[in-house]
Design a protein around this nucleic acid. Structure first.
Lengths: 340, 340
DNA sequence: TTGAAAGCGTTACCAC
DNA sequence: GTGGTAACGCTTTCAA
């Protein structure tokens, strides 16, 4: 529990020099720096967090709010929490968890007591109560996800619209004229912010490309595995020769099983592409082309924006992350078999 | 951003009186207290976190370390994180997340840093590197789970042994003489701390009760759903008339499906009881008797132990939480049909 | 290139 | 029952 005084004494310098040597905010002679570094090592010194928070103007802590709704997909959520944590640590920040209803009162609390420098908001709902809150508190707040009313807010998200549109383009370019979108469970279109964006862009681009498009829902991870299969069966019977999947990993599996049971090969008989998946579609029994969700990319961007805001340069806007395409050979030219 | 000085001024008292009125550590006259409370409300005052950490002897923050291994069952893990957070908030504590390799260096850091008052350790492995670390740092550390070498450590966990033994007892009492334990994936018996405890107690008690016992593994959540079904089929063919399940929710579903397909009714033809489930077994297609995992109970106990340690009264020991039994009618007397 | 010292906003001890 | 004030350990301005 050595403090800065002991380090200063051991190095034969003043405490201010120790502070500057460690922060790098002022030039320190090589020799002095060496002596300080040695003292730091010897004494196993680390600046007291509370003292830094009080004296400095930053706490080096981000709050991470997560409502943890019952229907939240746990693996995806965990991936975001992990990614946020990694992104924060890269900039010497720690992450403080704000869960449940605490998310709201907690945001107010940590903003008022100056426990955190900024707040990261996960699992954003279209009408998220944290939107109004963000506008009323002093802490910079970054949304990972895009609420309906996002005027003046700092938001980061995958460009789901672009991903959906590009998926349609790929399929249309391959000659497909009838495409099905196997989406999320119906409830997700109200509780989450991105499913409607995928569906909207899908339908829009399909119309632009003069492609017949149908949208169907699937169960979530916990739903009966028959929901997604029924949707697929229906789409195929209506002539779809290509599928865009925007579902959980489990549903991907069910869908591929359904295709396989119907004797439809990918991509010979039917083309498939995944949008916004949070898992690796290359490890499915049939690898699937994908515009994946990239939690790390989103969280890195969110942390950068948070830091900028902490520095007094907030960038209120919806910052969309360009989707990246991972090809795994699941898209092929249109074939009539599926229609039959 | 009002501070204690402004509150004191507004209430017409000294800052020490404000401090004492808020902490309750000294008697304050009703009238004075009211004036202070009003000033606090009006100014929306909350004590500065950094100043408290520095001046007081606590930070009101717990670190929560989670390795987040690839094979971690996300929903269960999230339940523990949430429960820990809730337990902490009940005592006015926040939770700081320490993930990945950061878990180790992070533990050292926040201990040396004085950022947290204590550390809660999740997802404990039999040979957990955090065990040695816990012994070498100053922060009180509470393990939620029991590592192999736990001498001198503070550990909390469900009494898996008791749960497994009681499950065997219930079945033996009902007349069953051949019981199968459908356990976790093979890997879990090395990477996690509790699967071996369940298996050990199961086999031990079965022997004590002179009951034939077999143990079989199942896949984890992501494994092919056939693994668990094969195990069950095998057990039945070997004469088992009762099953103890220690598996993920998905495997529970697969197992019930297998029984159903074989025309075996629960509990008429076969008895089933679940041990250590982190989900509600009453909502399965066939409700199953259960000795559930109770994250909140574990985390409440862990937080209590952490607080005691922070107060200078550490209780190094393995604190086992008595399992609770939830009956849902899935245990019945032995019937010969399953044997056939 | 370095040092002295003034805060930062609490808590808690010591007086009254 | 209340007030004054010395820590707490750092960051940062001002001087040298």
């Amino acid at each position: 529990m050595a403090n800065i005084n002991e380090v200063a004494k051991a190095a034969g310098v003043s405490i201010s020099t120790v502070s500057y040597a460690l922060s790098g905010k002022r030039a320190v002679s090589p020799d002095t720096r060496r002596r300080i570094e040695k003292a730091v090592q010897d004494l196993n010194y680390l600046p007291n967090a509370g003292a830094r928070m009080l004296a400095g103007r930053r706490t080096q802590i981000f709050a991470l709010t997560e409502p943890l709704r019952k229907d939240t997909h746990a693996p995806t959520h965990m991936a975001f929490v992990l990614a946020a944590s990694v992104a924060a640590r890269r900039h010497d920040y720690d992450v403080l968890l704000l869960t449940e209803e605490e998310a709201q009162q907690g945001m107010r609390r940590v903003a008022a007591n100056r426990l955190v420098d900024a707040i990261l908001v996960l699992d954003v709902a279209p009408d998220d109560p944290r939107v109004g809150l963000a506008r009323s508190i002093s802490s910079p707040t970054v949304f990972i996800g895009v609420p309906r009313d996002h005027a003046g807010l700092i938001c980061v998200d995958l460009d789901f619209e672009a991903a959906a549109a590009r998926a349609v383009d790929l399929l249309a370019d391959a000659g497909h004229t009838s495409i099905g979108l196997v989406g999320q469970a119906e409830a997700a279109y109200e509780k989450s912010n991105f499913p409607p964006r995928v569906r909207g862009a899908f339908l829009r681009r399909a119309e632009e490309r003069d492609v017949e498009a149908v949208h169907g829902t699937s169960g979530g991870a916990r739903a009966s595995r028959t929901a997604a299969r029924r949707t697929v069966a229906d789409m195929i019977s209506r002539g779809a020769t290509a599928l865009v999947l925007h579902t959980a990993e489990e549903a991907h599996g069910s869908i591929l099983a359904e295709l396989s049971e119907r004797g439809l090969r990918v991509p010979e008989d039917i083309s498939v592409v995944s949008v916004g998946a949070s898992f690796d579609t290359a490890t499915l029994e049939t690898p699937i082309d994908s515009f994946p969700l990239d939690p790390q990319a989103s969280c890195d961007a969110a942390v950068d924006l948070a830091l900028a805001a902490v520095d007094g340069h907030p960038e209120p806007a919806v910052h969309l992350i360009a989707p990246r395409y991972h090809a795994h050979g699941s898209i092929g030219p249109r074939h009539e078999k599926a229609v039959a």
